[in-house]
Design a protein around this nucleic acid. Structure first.
Lengths: 260, 260
DNA sequence: GAGTGGTCTAGACCACTGT
DNA sequence: CAGTGGTCTAGACCACTCC
């Protein structure tokens, strides 16, 4: 039954967004038990083809287009923007650049906390365990959708930024110019960023915030490590994106061969 | 029941690799039906915690360490190697570099075919639809494991490489020095590589080859587009990695600010 | 209240594994 | 052969949605 329904979905016989027949109907049509119908539907969910809502029905999942995040040029763009005027910086942020949405169409949720660095994090930041770090938690949501575009958590050793109290105040968010500008106010210039990309099943809270309703859909987990011009790690950020709505892009220029 | 077993697994009470009690035992111990036991076990599979084998039992999944693929330096390394001696090129390949395994510990499976470019592929290559392209399918497997490390398919317009008949002969694989060296024999120098990374549920054949036994585990799908010094797309390659055993890494250097 | 999907039980047979 | 997980049936009750 899963095969047959999959055929109808990919061929377009069952349009995106349209409901499947109810489970009792399907069990009669195909002459199988409801348990088997549910197993088949579960397979379709795992393949990301359908979505069920209790009390309403099961629907063909419309494929939302993937947001392309071209991180190579994005990071350089963020750096270049540090030197722009405040007006210019205030007018647009990184997410708008990726999604093509305007700033007023986006909602941000921010939370600042000072916490001691756990072992793994301390390792990544190259600092002793339990050193205080500023932990900033972000959620970005498009007003037109109820699903968050991303969840991320950034960690910066407190020692690096305590010179500027504005950086410890979450009411200054969204900060015009982003993290690279924030760090520039305490004299930090980022020289290199390392992205580590993993795919894994979502945690329960990630599933909820990113509205990942289909089992089988993973998240893209990105750890971004920012290194300044002295080789010191100044920020570690963990971001999570819905795997079915995100594409990460990296452009890698190669050194030219010497001409003969 | 899923919660209780998860607790035992993460706490280490149930050691990695050890078997769970059988489904009938569990249903008696917890006083629930076997169907419910199976539902709970399915949840654990989705979270990647256990693996079932028919006729044998259900086991706590040992977490295999992730292979780090640092693509930024990998691509440059491959390019530099083109200029190395054949002996040197013959001695080691890219996969060995990533995994730390030696060449004799790896098995390759290669298949060459000439096919007309489909619409999407023709777009990506910037050529008219149905232009003939060389399609090369690779599977790399470590001898010590039965799961393939990666599956990939590379497409090169035939017109670019037909000048060197050796490039059309799959018995020359594994080619010492890899694709960048192959292309160099027909005068092509790669100037830029674009990686596009997605996470998605595995297709049935990918699930089998990569031995992705846990539902809920996605694959990392990488499209690599190679562009030569004239701005022409010379190769498009689609690679698929097991999401739970792979980490993709990109190092992005940023341009320095001008000194005052 | 009628209809939906979510959860559950009790029991059957099959395919596969090991001894 | 006994024991395992994989598949299946038939039926029950619950939580939720919508009219």
């Amino acid at each position: 039954m899963a095969e047959e329904l999959q055929r109808q979905i990919v061929s377009g016989e069952l349009a995106p967004g349209s409901p499947l027949p109810s489970e009792t109907e399907l069990s009669q049509d195909f002459g199988i038990s409801r348990t088997s119908v549910r197993n088949a539907i579960r397979e379709l969910k795992e393949r990301g083809l359908v979505r069920s809502e209790q009390g309403k029905g099961t629907f063909v999942r419309p494929q939302r287009p993937r947001v392309r995040r071209v991180n190579t040029s994005r990071y350089q763009w963020e750096k270049d923007r540090v030197k722009a005027s405040e007006d210019e910086r205030r007018s647009t942020g990184g997410t708008e650049r990726d999604t093509g949405l305007e700033m007023k169409e986006l909602r941000f949720h921010v939370d600042y906390q000072t916490v001691p660095a756990s072992g793994e994090l301390a390792d990544a930041l190259g600092i002793p365990e339990d050193t205080p770090v500023l932990q900033r938690t972000y959620q970005t949501t498009a007003n037109s959708e109820d699903a968050a575009l991303s969840m991320s958590r950034s960690y910066i050793p407190l020692a690096i930024i305590e010179g500027n109290p504005d950086l410890l105040d979450s009411t200054n968010e969204p900060w015009p110019g982003g993290t690279q500008h924030q760090l520039s106010t305490v004299g930090v210039e980022i020289a290199k960023i390392i992205d580590e990309v993993q795919a894994r099943p979502p945690l329960p809270d990630e599933r909820e915030v990113l509205k990942i309703d289909a089992t089988g859909v993973s998240v893209l987990a990105l750890r971004k490590t920012s290194i300044d011009t002295t080789g010191r790690v100044v920020e570690v950020a963990d971001a999570v994106y819905a795997g079915d709505r995100t594409e990460l892009v990296y452009e890698i220029p190669l050194k030219r061969w010497k001409r003969p």
